[in-house]
């Protein structure tokens, strides 16, 4: 029982991070039909913004030295600005281009940012002590639960509720939801493409900021490809959950995270490093059975 609770919390925690990463990616795909590979670099940049650029293995903290509330706000604001700059400088000028062009642009931007960070911060991993106390465990009943898992789940729940309210009750939120379903129609109703896309990028940057902080609190080390893996799982989760809606990526993130956690728990010790092979095998089977993903996009049925 104790083990089952621990596995459940671990899985939910992992699923939460994947869901946040997937939502950031799914949001941009929804409004622009752009798969933003540079989302991984946003996550990495959020983590690197915590330190002052240097080649030192133990770097001097910059934003990381701020008190927690200010630190969180600063990282989020930095990534919102970077995401908006990405949209304005790279993606807006080619918005009408074919999907292949957008994909290549997104790849190029991803590599450009990755190697720029390598140039500025150096390639050696750096140890960073941000929220290390969160890796300690607390006793809940007979189970030992890491604080970071609880914080991750709570942060995700709060963020999802806040985002759901934003999408439901604000004009820009309603416009983003409409654009996610049918951008062409939304524009014919006077919805400004630039505002909606910029809004989606801003939210995506905010989500990347939170993922960035949750990941760095967990791993305690910076390296230029920190966000790449997270973005990869975000893409997979988005596809598994269903592209073109906002609930799809969230469902996909939790599904992939929970599947990973359960597989990790049931595999014998010597096979645990191969966990991802099993996870991706399940993903392939799922997509064969249900290519549109877990959440089927509601479409207006033709009725008479």
């Amino acid at each position: 029982m104790q083990y089952a609770i621990q596995v459940a919390i671990d899985s939910l925690s992992l699923g939460s991070i994947y869901a946040l990463a997937a939502l950031g990616i799914g949001l941009i795909f929804g409004v622009m039909r752009l798969i933003n590979f540079a989302h991984g670099e946003l996550i990495t940049m959020g983590a690197y913004s915590l330190i002052i650029p240097s080649a030192a293995v133990i770097p001097t903290l910059f934003v990381g030295a701020f008190p927690w509330p200010l630190l969180i706000v600063s990282v989020v604001v930095i990534l919102v600005i970077v995401a908006l700059a990405m949209e304005r400088i790279v993606f807006r000028p080619i918005r009408g281009a074919d999907p292949a062009t957008l994909l290549i642009a997104s790849f190029s931007l991803s590599y450009f940012l990755q190697y720029t960070m390598l140039l500025v911060y150096g390639g050696r991993p750096k140890g960073i002590d941000i929220g290390s106390s969160l890796t300690e465990s607390i006793q809940i009943g007979s189970a030992e639960i890491a604080k970071i898992d609880i914080v991750t789940i709570l942060a995700t729940v709060v963020l999802m509720l806040a985002l759901a309210s934003f999408m439901k009750w604000t004009s820009i939120g309603i416009q983003i939801r409409a654009a996610t379903q049918d951008f062409r129609m939304a524009r014919m109703l006077g919805v400004k493409a630039n505002a909606v896309i910029a809004g989606a990028f801003a939210v995506s940057g905010m989500l990347a900021g939170v993922v960035s902080l949750l990941v760095i609190s967990r791993v305690g080390a910076l390296e230029p490809r920190l966000g790449v893996n997270m973005a990869l799982y975000g893409f997979v989760s988005t596809v598994v959950g269903g592209m073109g809606s906002l609930t799809g990526p969230v469902a996909g993130g939790f599904a992939v995270g929970i599947a990973s956690g359960i597989i990790q728990a049931i595999l014998p010790d010597h096979m645990r490093p191969t966990r991802d092979a099993f996870v991706f095998a399940i993903v392939i089977v799922l997509l064969l059975v249900r290519p549109e993903g877990i959440v089927r996009l509601k479409s207006s049925k033709e009725r008479v």
Partner: peptide
């Protein structure tokens, strides 16, 4: 110039109110 497209272009996941509001946000 407002358009009612072929297939209606309704946002099925949005409520009636939200669909209507979309035509007014810019006003």
């Amino acid at each position: 110039i407002a358009m009612v497209p072929e297939g209606r272009g309704i946002f099925s996941a949005l409520t009636i109110r939200e669909n209507l509001l979309l035509g007014t946000f810019w006003r």
